[in-house]
C-alpha cells in the first residue's frame, strides 16, 4: 500500500466575530472560541500506481487531508502512513519521495524562466546531472513546452504555468503525486492537456496520484476510484459510476409532444424538472422506466422520446446535499 489513513482528524480553532465596531471592541477583551472539525476520522488506503480522485464541495476537508498526507499540517488525531513514513514527521527521505502541486500556489520564481526553478529543485533534491537532463527531456516532450523553458514564469499563461509547476514537481521522480486542483481556472483545452499528461505519466511511471478537483471531468477521465468527502467525512469510496446507482438511481425521460399537454397530468409519472407545454423532462426511478415510458407513449401524442442517464455531477451534488 502506498497510502494508509486511519481515523485521521483535524480540528481548527477560530473565533466568532460579529459585524460592527462594538463587537470588535468586545472581541478585544473576550473571544468566543469555536472548533471546526475540518476532517473527521477518515480512513482509506491507496495502492501503488492508483489514481484516486478526491471529490467534495468547498470546505469538505479535501485539501486539509492532502496537506496532512504531505506533512504540511499536523493532524489532531489518527494516523497515516505514506510510503511507510508518517508524513508530519517531515523526514528528508520522505520529502524526496513525493511531490505536491497546489493549483493556487506556485513554486516558480516569477521573474525568472521556469528552467531556473527546475535547477533549484535539482540542487534541493540532489538530482544528478544525467537524471535531471533525462527527466527534463521526458517531461518537456510529454507536455510539449520546449519553447517555454526560457520564458519568465510570470509571462506564461495559466495553463503554461501549470505545466511548468508539474515539471518542477516531478523533476526528482517522486513515487507519489498529490494534486490539489491542478486545472483550476484553466480553459477547456488546457484542462484536457493536463489530464492527458497525468494519465500518460501514470501509465509510464506507475506513480500513485491523489487528485482533488472541482471539475468532474478531471475525476471522470482520470480516476477509476473516487473518494467523496463532505463535512470532513468519507461519504463514498469506489467507482464514480456507482454513485449513480448507490445514491441516485434516477433516469431522465425527455419527451416532445405533438400538442400542448397539462403539466399536472405529467406529475403522476415522476418529478417534472422541465416543462414548456410541448417539451418535458421527467425524472423517475431506474426500475420504473419501462412502465412509465409505455404509459406516456400510450396516453400522450408523443413526437420524440429519449431516456438519459442522470449527469454524474448532479448525482454527486445530491450526495453532497445528503451529507449536508
Amino acid at each position: 500500500m502506498a497510502i494508509i489513513v486511519k481515523d485521521l482528524n483535524k480540528q481548527y480553532h477560530y473565533y466568532k466575530k460579529q459585524a460592527g465596531l462594538a463587537q470588535s471592541v468586545k472581541n478585544l477583551f473576550h473571544r468566543e472560541k469555536l472548533v471546526k472539525e475540518a476532517v473527521r476520522n477518515i480512513s482509506f488506503s491507496i495502492d501503488e500506481g492508483e489514481i484516486v480522485g478526491f471529490l467534495g464541495p468547498n470546505g469538505a476537508g479535501k485539501t486539509t487531508t492532502l496537506k496532512m498526507l504531505s506533512g504540511i499540517l499536523f493532524p489532531t488525531g489518527g494516523s497515516a502512513s505514506v510510503l511507510g513514513f508518517t508524513p508530519w514527521e517531515r523526514k528528508k527521505e520522505f520529502k524526496k519521495r513525493f511531490a505536491i502541486v497546489l493549483g493556487q500556489k506556485s513554486q516558480l520564481w516569477p521573474d525568472l524562466p521556469a528552467y531556473e526553478s527546475f535547477q533549484l529543485n535539482k540542487a534541493i533534491y540532489e538530482v544528478d546531472d544525467r537524471t535531471f537532463s533525462a527527466t527534463l527531456d521526458e517531461l518537456v516532450e510529454l507536455l510539449d513546452v520546449k519553447e517555454l523553458l526560457h520564458v519568465q514564469a510570470r509571462r506564461l499563461s495559466l495553463g503554461e504555468r501549470m505545466k511548468m509547476e508539474l515539471i518542477a514537481s516531478l523533476i526528482h521522480r517522486p513515487r507519489i503525486l498529490f494534486l490539489d486542483e491542478p486545472t483550476i481556472g484553466l480553459d477547456v483545452i488546457s484542462q484536457k492537456k493536463i489530464r492527458e499528461f497525468i494519465r500518460k505519466y501514470n501509465e509510464r511511471f506507475k506513480i500513485t496520484v491523489l487528485l482533488t478537483s472541482h471539475y468532474m471531468k478531471d475525476i471522470e477521465e482520470l480516476c477509476r476510484r473516487t473518494i467523496v468527502i463532505n463535512e470532513g467525512q468519507v461519504m463514498f469510496d469506489g467507482d464514480l459510476n456507482r454513485i449513480k446507482t448507490s445514491f441516485a438511481d434516477i433516469k431522465r425521460l425527455k419527451v416532445q409532444f405533438a400538442e400542448e399537454v397539462d403539466v399536472e397530468r405529467l406529475r403522476s409519472f415522476g418529478k417534472v424538472t422541465e416543462w414548456d407545454g410541448v417539451h418535458a423532462t421527467i425524472e423517475t426511478n431506474h426500475q420504473d422506466v419501462p412502465a412509465v415510458s409505455q404509459q406516456l407513449l400510450n396516453r400522450f401524442p408523443v413526437l420524440d422520446f429519449a431516456v438519459e442517464e442522470q449527469p454524474i455531477d448532479e448525482a454527486v451534488a445530491k450526495l453532497f446535499a445528503k451529507g449536508g
Binding site: K67, K96, A99, I100, S106
Partner: peptide
C-alpha cells in the same frame, strides 16, 4: 497566506 505550504514539503530545513 499559506505560502509556507510548498516550502515545508522541500527536503531541506524549512
Amino acid at each position: 497566506e499559506g505560502t509556507l505550504d510548498l516550502l515545508i514539503t522541500k527536503p531541506v530545513s524549512t
